[in-house]
Amino acid sequence: MSTLIIIDQPPYGSWEGREALDMAFSLAAFDQPVTLMFCGAGVNWLRKGQNAGKVGQKSVERNLAAAPIFGVEALLACTEACNRYGLTQTDLLDGVTVTAVGPELTSRYDHVTFAG
């Protein structure tokens, strides 16, 4: 049973994205295949160079870097949203694959779910 978790909220403004990350890590803990996809303002999770200490939070950039170690299969970013937020491949965390949202993508997973 593979799961695609879509995060479409920006980092730091709310806890919903972190809850989604927690869900992804929990699935991975039980060896369930899980992929995280960042869409809309959510792609800002993936920008290099975050200094979240300035707003008294932990860096989601750093937290996300642990995803492969915990067994999250892939980190995906929506092409359209990356363009919208001026993110090129070099601006993104290592190991992120940029891809378009569409029926081909969602059909690859048994479950598609969201942050919040």
Partner: peptide, 16 residues
């Protein structure tokens, strides 16, 4: 230091 998070569960600790 690298990830700013403790392994969230025992399973993930073992995995890491």
């Amino acid at each position: 230091r690298d990830y700013q998070v403790s392994p969230p569960s025992n399973r993930l600790f073992v995995k890491a």
